[in-house]
Design a protein around this nucleic acid. Sequence first.
DNA 1: CAGTGGTCTAGACCACACG
DNA 2: GTGTGGTCTAGACCACTGA
Lengths: 237, 237
Amino acid sequence: MGHLPFQRLQVELTNLIASLPTESRLPSEPVLARELGVSRSTLREAMRSFETQGLIRRKQGVGTFVIGEVPVIDSGMEVLESIETSAGRIGLSVSTDSLKVERLSADAEWAGVLDVPIGNALTRVSRVILTDERPVAYLVDTLPESILSQEDLITGFTGSVLDLLLRRGSPRLVSSRTEIKAVNATAEVAHMLEIQRGDVLLNFTASLYSTAGRVIDHSFSYFLPGYFSFHVNRRVG
Amino acid sequence: MGHLPFQRLQVELTNLIASLPTESRLPSEPVLARELGVSRSTLREAMRSFETQGLIRRKQGVGTFVIGEVPVIDSGMEVLESIETSAGRIGLSVSTDSLKVERLSADAEWAGVLDVPIGNALTRVSRVILTDERPVAYLVDTLPESILSQEDLITGFTGSVLDLLLRRGSPRLVSSRTEIKAVNATAEVAHMLEIQRGDVLLNFTASLYSTAGRVIDHSFSYFLPGYFSFHVNRRVG
DNA sequence: CAGTGGTCTAGACCACACG
DNA sequence: GTGTGGTCTAGACCACTGA
């Protein structure tokens, strides 16, 4: 009956995961593969989507664990707000990890994106968002140093560049143009989010504008599906 | 220095694909794997993202081909419009394939979603969108038969349920609530889109509302990344 | 150290297109 | 039939965790 190992596997894994209590550990991959009558490769492939859905968590050197209810961070796309704000609305506290602030020089491409001369100093802030120890988003903000310098980040920086700019009040922000894509995790992003290379991610590429129509900030955001719910109300043409 | 076969592979494949003319065929997988000094599994894994980006096209039993410039269908999320309309704006003609119309009975879940009694007759329209022979989107619309019957679809149905409802003018439509996700292709969807199971897709789940606030239609849409560009302007809270 | 998940290999067999 | 991409296997080795 082994005609469709994969689809059968998905069903059996679904049942197995549902039958186990939260936080419990699955059998190791070699053992589980033997029990289910498939090779380890096939088992791992089937497990992929379960992790991006937030149903299990794999930790290298430790094991694979069942996750219970995932607190889904809900956010409407009409309004731009930080993940901290979205999470706060559902009473979820998130933390920032792997915060990195870099100073770099604008090459031709970045000069074009941010509308500054080539060679201008830029500030780049990258960070990982955690909910309950789980990395769920990776964010990279790039903006002119004249707008945000490393010194600005010393005091009272919680992690969100957007929240910092809003709190400071200048320059005044009005809107962001956001492009929505689905991507495979690159090796770098996979490492930051503790997932596997090639796993599916939701990606936003956004430019933030001031009232003067200037580009204030450019950001790449990568979200683990299963932990977020983005929605939008579209009017009929 | 084969310490990072995969990352090196990505670079070499990028160069190889860029160096070949449009429509040309790549060497077969066993040959190419040997030439690049990796196993076939690794080669195929690395090729995955190239296909979802629209850079190559794999055809079972035929070969793997280089795609040139992909016409990207650009669409703003503020306004709901059919893919035909979005494609038309950039002068691209798309066609419908694998059109299937089903009649089914509302179970408890669908009754709740569409706000009809359990057991009510429903119409389901599923189809694949092609651009230049390439399946790029898979759409499934489900709605009460009282709103759209199979007879309504006999004459002048181009494929888009939305366009048909708009042309008919009743019921009057106002908006849609759309949820945005990134997913792995299921076996079924992968087959319809001629991609591999597990490949990354952008997914919209939407409910369409009438002026009376009734749910008129529920749809699942799956898009191949690389062929679409969805964007939204977000205002600052 | 032993045991876990992460990566990669070599090869088998299947499904499909085309001559 | 021949050759292609699609699936699956068995096993090796690495990277990491924790006792």
